[in-house]
């Protein structure tokens, strides 16, 4: 999982690239890494364009990351869902929990327009 900070929109947004499979074995490392990322910024984007597979435990981990972001007055937004991953989000209705964008740049830029982000600035 690569992580970088983006400050282009006047707000620090953490962009994490998720790759490969996100299942039971990948959930705990994601939760752990997310806790670390939250110390840098509560505004997170998960770039899922290279995520091939997700199961319910991976989904649970992402929802956990969202909950932590919301608790810190931030948000977690998703970008570039592949068709298979999108199907899981549709099936489980998890799509309704997230703001989903076509790419990470758009998702990061979207934070610039949120009331929370404006307040921060």
């Amino acid at each position: 999982m690569k992580f970088r900070l983006d400050t282009q929109n006047g707000i620090t947004v953490g962009i994490a690239e998720l790759e490969g499979r996100l299942d039971a074995s990948g959930s705990a490392p994601l939760q752990k890494a997310s806790a670390d990322w939250q110390t840098k910024t509560p505004f997170l984007v998960f770039d899922c364009s290279r995520l091939d597979f997700i199961d319910s435990s991976g989904l649970g981990a992402i929802v956990g990351c969202l909950r932590r972001s919301l608790e810190n007055n931030g948000d977690l937004r998703l970008a570039g869902l592949t068709p298979k991953v999108a199907m899981v989000f549709d099936l489980t209705k998890a799509r309704k929990l997230f703001s989903i964008f076509s790419n990470a740049g758009e998702a990061a830029a979207s934070f610039g327009a949120t009331p929370t982000a404006i307040q921060e600035r």
Binding site: P83, K84, M87, V88, D90, L91, T92, K93
Partner: peptide, 23 residues
């Protein structure tokens, strides 16, 4: 608590008939 709309489900496989994506 699942939502299946515009799909074919066959055992553990979910298919989008429009795109042909199979999960």
């Amino acid at each position: 608590q699942l939502e299946i709309e515009g799909r074919i489900a066959s055992k553990n496989t979910l298919i989008d008939p429009e795109s042909g994506v199979t999960l």
